[in-house]
Design a protein around this nucleic acid. Structure first.
Lengths: 343, 343
DNA sequence: TTCTCTACTGTGAACGCTCACAGAAGCATG
DNA sequence: CATGCTTCTGTGAGCGTTCACAGTAGAGAA
């Protein structure tokens, strides 16, 4: 009667135990574990049975030691922390990436690099090869971590087009410009002609591209470019509130606002409410993101849906392709107008 | 002229290189790396200089292979996914844990186990020793993953008291009952006497304890227990809305509601607004959590703050203590009443 | 037959580290 | 002067895997 796998918590079974159980050599077990090429069907089956019987699980440390790969990837957040809190997009993205990676049996290491010290530590950790690649969430330009990682040759996929870096870095992004165009066209179709905009920070792709889309459509419609109708925020609720106040002051005849994020749009709604403006009767409001904030708002926000589930899937796909030796790639995904009450 | 660390990306320096550079043996370098006991000051310094010069970073896989530890911990979420989205507490908790662990140079693996298959995979992964311990977020009772991990002897710290499990599992929780007591006492102090409650699911500690606190205070105040004033939700906004409607129907003379989460309280506010009730004039509303939803609501919610930053710190502290050989422990942290407009 | 090719299998040698052990040196104690 | 103790150092072994290589068997071609 031999010792079996149940109970005892003695020692985890190794590839050796499996080999003995299956009556083959370590090499054959290893081959089965790694795709099963050059293994006879009989051996294949014997090994699988032995694995089930012993409850064998590969020791990833031993594997990594020799392969040099870690079979894990990092999810790196270099944003200032308040965004992480307030922006529901991060949650969706994080969850999507975790799941997409889990499907490949690849664990995700969460890394927060808010301070200088943290950045140094994390950079060291990553460049030491403790992860095979990095999913980067950092829309601000001039991110030193991103640049260092790129220089060190770490496979990298950014979420949103990285402004500072060269073209050699992969990214996945929603079509910000096209989304903005859709929204502004929608506002025009409602008969609005004095359309304001609260855009994002000018060092983020969302800030730049959404504003560009807005300007393009107005120009195409033959409307004058009026800089009094343009203010910028930082994607926070508070900045939306402040932005709306400034707009109302500078352009009291405004009849619509395009806001570059739902969270800011919440702030805008609050400011308009305080100013006695009815939405959408007096002023139509269009958001961006289709976050939970959009449905939570009163009135519910008409907004642009970013395909976050597809974005996370694509980020993982592109990163894995890169780990497999493929070249960096840029992926741009279409957005969708979601009509609710605010416009 | 010897090959130096800069450029070339040839091969990462090993402990061997450091030893040669410092003129000592591998063993001495290893001792320096692991606390520096039994190392002469001279050797200590030589090794540190060599580490700086070579840019050496320890290979964690090699270390883990021999120590059997992975020097990483898992953050396991077995909640249904919508909570992860909607509840901002998870973000604060996740961020806090990541940072607290980073201070000990321990990476955090994010694990989502929503479906049966995912649960199986994750359990296998964890029990195989790929993480040293687990921070568990799963308030629902009868969680099969938690039970399996406990049975397998995996060091575990839960967030919130795990209902199903025995007392051998560590947890960190806010004092739900006391927080509820504070809120209900506050409502009483405002002169309210017909106080309703929208509690959480009865299989969560929040659902049980907050309701218990509510009942205790009413009893202590000599008020009758009226089951028409008690409904339960699932912490979602929608369930708060439905709960408020049911309360209004069953107890039209209600003059206050204690809601077991801010998110549900948002729903309650919406329902009250629709029913033409003014808050706080007609009905005072008290929330729980002090989440961003509390300030976003109109009127801003009076609520109970849970010390999430302390909770995450304590979770990590208790887990690390357990990894160091200490026994499981329960930590209960005080809450705080935050007065705003709604009550 | 003999040779070559393909499909499959087993065996040492790493990978980079820690741990146990042996041994050296210094100093106090018997 | 031996003995013990403490502090420090180097060395071999081995953690569990993969990889390169050598080798076997069987099929088909010369």
């Amino acid at each position: 009667m031999t010792m079996s796998n149940t109970g005892g918590r003695r020692r985890a079974p190794t590839i050796h135990d499996v080999a003995r159980e299956a009556g083959v050599s370590r090499g054959t077990v290893s081959r089965v574990l790694n795709g099963g090429h050059y293994v006879s069907p009989a051996a294949q089956e014997a090994v699988n049975a032995a694995i089930r019987k012993t409850g064998y699980v590969v020791n990833r440390h031993a594997r990594s030691l020799i392969t040099g790969r870690s079979d894990s990837v990092g999810f790196l957040l270099t944003e200032p922390q308040e965004r992480f809190f307030e922006d529901p997009n991060f949650n969706v993205l994080l969850r999507g990436c975790t799941q997409a990676l889990a499907a490949h049996d690849i664990p995700l290491l969460l890394m927060l690099a808010g301070t200088r010290d943290e950045r140094r530590r994390i950079t060291r950790y990553i460049t030491a090869g403790h992860v095979d690649g990095v999913l980067l969430v950092s829309s601000h330009s001039g991110d030193p971590v991103a640049e260092e990682l790129r220089a060190a040759g770490v496979p990298l996929v950014a979420c949103g087009k990285p402004i500072g870096l060269g073209s050699k870095v992969s990214y996945v992004a929603a079509d910000d410009r096209d989304g903005a165009r859709d929204m502004v066209r929608h506002l025009l179709s409602l008969g609005r002609r004095r359309i304001g905009v609260v855009t994002g920070p000018p060092d983020t792709p969302g800030g730049v591209e959404r504003l560009a889309g807005y300007r393009e459509v107005l120009a195409e419609a033959g409307l004058p470019a009026d800089e009094r109708l343009v203010v910028s925020g930082d994607y926070s609720r508070a900045s939306g509130e402040a932005g709306a106040e400034r707009l109302l002051e500078r352009a009291p005849d405004m009849d619509a606002v395009f806001v570059a994020s739902d969270l800011m749009a919440q702030g805008v709604l609050a400011a308009l409410h305080r100013a006695g403006k009815r939405v959408p009767e007096d002023i139509a409001v269009g958001g961006f993101d289709d976050s939970p904030a959009a449905t939570a708002a009163t009135p519910a926000l008409t907004t642009i849906r970013q395909p976050w589930d597809r974005i996370s899937n694509e980020m993982v796909r592109v990163l894995l392709a890169q780990l497999g030796g493929e070249d960096p790639a840029a992926v741009i995904l279409p957005t969708e107008l979601v009509r609710r009450e605010s416009a």
